Simulated assay, not measured.
Amino acid sequence: MDEDDDGGGTGSLFLDENYVEQRISIGHHEIPVLSLQCSSTDYDLTGQIIWPGTELLLNYIVDHSQIFQGASIIELGSGVGVTGLLCGRIGCRKVVMTDHNDIVLKIMRKNVALQQDTALLSRIACEKLEWGNEEQLSLILDKHPEGFDYILGADICYQQCNIPPLMRTVNKLLQHHHCRKFFLAYISRIQSTDRAFFNEASEHNLELREVEVSRTSPGDGIYSGVIYEIILKRDCHNCRTFTAPNI
Results as ranks from 00 to 15, higher is better:
Met1Pro: 09
Asp4Lys: 11
Gly8Trp: 01
Ser12Leu: 10
Leu13Lys: 12
Leu13Met: 12
Phe14Tyr: 13
His29Ile: 08
Pro32Met: 14
Leu34Thr: 02
Gln37Cys: 11
Asp44Cys: 08
Thr46Ile: 14
Thr46Val: 11
Gln48Gly: 12
Leu56Arg: 13
Gln66Phe: 14
Phe68Gln: 04
Gly70Lys: 03
Ile73Thr: 10
Gly77Pro: 06
Val80Cys: 13
Val80Tyr: 05
Thr83His: 05
Leu85Val: 12
Cys92Met: 08
Thr98Asn: 06
Lys106Tyr: 02
Lys106Asp: 08
Val112Tyr: 04
Gln116Tyr: 01
Leu120Tyr: 08
Leu121Pro: 01
Arg123Cys: 13
Arg123Ala: 11
Glu127Tyr: 00
Leu129Lys: 13
Gly132Thr: 04
Glu134Trp: 04
Ser138His: 12
Leu139Trp: 06
Lys143Gln: 15
Glu146Lys: 12
Leu152Trp: 09
Ala154Ser: 14
Ile156Ser: 02
Ile156Trp: 00
Tyr158Thr: 13
Asn162Thr: 07
Leu166Ala: 12
Thr169Asn: 04
Asn171Asp: 05
His178Val: 02
Arg180Trp: 00
Arg180Val: 08
Arg180Cys: 06
Arg180Lys: 15
Lys181Arg: 14
Phe182Thr: 00
Tyr186Glu: 03
Ile187Leu: 13
Ile190Pro: 05
Ser202Ala: 14
Val211Asn: 11
Pro218Val: 06
Gly221Val: 12
Val226Asn: 06
Arg234Leu: 06
Arg240Pro: 13
Pro245Lys: 02
